[in-house]
Design a protein around this nucleic acid. Structure first.
Length: 344
DNA sequence: GAACCGTGGAG
DNA sequence: TCTCCAAGGTT
């Protein structure tokens, strides 16, 4: 599968590639908090936080440090209550991740005697830990041989190997992992994996990469890096309307809805209704947000004119105004509720 | 295999 | 305003 310059003297070329990459990293690698620890628990928290989330978001808003202060080890996380758990994750999105983190903490305790396993297969059985995160844990925490493929790595590899098929199809991912395994450095897993990912983040960027600064440019086969990687066409965005209710009782309490279901259980929002039920009520606030393939226009309607004995629906409860903002909410609702509370 | 799951920054 | 997409995983 390998082509020039990778075909001839394959082993020698691989070693040279690793050395160039690791040499660059040793001079230019950045200092992140999760690179200062070898605690698998702390590494895991960082990896899960960083899934589909930029480093600047995790670092800039203090999520990582704060989470570890609240939940410093698997034991504290294993017994975390929903409210505190979700509050520590509020603003990061993908709230199921933190729920699975708690499940993983419990599994480490009950199935592994409180210590993280080191085998890839056992790591991948932990909830929310897939092939990438398992490989990252092995490499970063234990410095054991491992390959990683994330968005950075697949971009780097697609360019280095001039791979113009879709990288995010099952076949494309299979190819990425194959190359990642071949190229991985069994002797310096931690440094090599860090270097490869940071190269993708800072040099081999999306769009137009900084090839003049690239330490492995001589190994790179593509002539058109800006055209790679090729990704599957995304589904079109659909516009939808969401009608929420802003309702306060005589004591000033606010009616909120606590979500059920597996994915969003425990997150608080304004009660929502079908358009026909409340769309004629005055609109207090209009905002838009995007969730998966929907662009949502969220209207908060004034429920003051509804019957006084308006019956709350299931999972809808009155919350003291001063407690509202301390609940964990999806960001769009948090913003709306914050605005409406200030106005009144 | 496709859909789903959040959010904020960059261009 | 709009699109892309970021240290992915689950269903």
């Amino acid at each position: 599968m390998l082509k020039p310059p990778w075909k001839k003297d394959a082993l020698k070329v691989r070693v040279a590639f690793r050395e160039a990459l690791e040499g660059w990293f040793s001079e230019n690698g950045r200092d992140y908090p999760w690179r200062r620890t070898r605690e698998p628990y702390e590494i895991l928290i960082s990896e899960v936080m960083l899934q589909q989330t930029q480093i600047a978001t995790v670092l800039g808003r203090g999520f990582y440090t704060r989470f570890l202060e609240v939940f410093p080890d698997v034991h504290s996380l294993a017994v975390a209550e929903d409210e505190r758990l979700l509050k520590a994750w509020e603003g990061l999105g993908y709230y199921r991740r933190v729920r699975m983190l708690r499940e993983t903490a419990r599994a480490v305790i009950t199935e592994h005697g409180g210590e993280f396993p080191q085998e890839l297969e056992k790591l991948m059985k932990l909830p929310g830990v897939g092939r990438y995160t398992a490989g990252a844990l092995r490499g970063f925490a234990f410095d054991l041989p491992s390959a990683v493929v994330d968005g950075n790595v697949s971009r780097v590899l697609s360019r280095v190997m001039d791979f113009s098929d879709e990288v995010d199809s099952p076949a494309g991912m299979k190819q990425m992992w194959e190359w990642a395994e071949i190229l991985a450095d069994p002797e310096h897993p931690r440094i090599y994996n860090s270097a490869l990912m940071e190269l993708g983040q800072r040099i081999c960027r999306p769009g137009v990469p900084d090839c003049l600064s690239c330490p492995v440019a001589e190994f790179c086969k593509t002539r058109e890096p800006e055209t790679l990687p090729v990704k599957k066409q995304k589904t079109t965005v659909t516009a939808v309307d969401e009608h929420a209710l802003w309702l306060r009782d005589r004591k000033g309490r606010v009616l909120l809805h606590r979500e059920g279901g597996k994915r969003r259980e425990g997150l608080w929002k304004l009660p929502t209704r079908e358009a026909g039920e409340i769309s004629s009520l005055p609109v207090l606030d209009v905002s838009t947000y995007t969730i998966t393939r929907y662009r949502v226009t969220l209207r908060a309607h004034d429920g003051a004119k509804l019957a006084k004995d308006f019956p709350p629906g299931p999972d809808e409860v009155w919350v003291e105004a001063e407690n509202v903002m301390s609940l964990a909410m999806p960001s769009p609702f948090r913003r709306v509720i914050g605005r409406l509370l200030e106005e009144s």
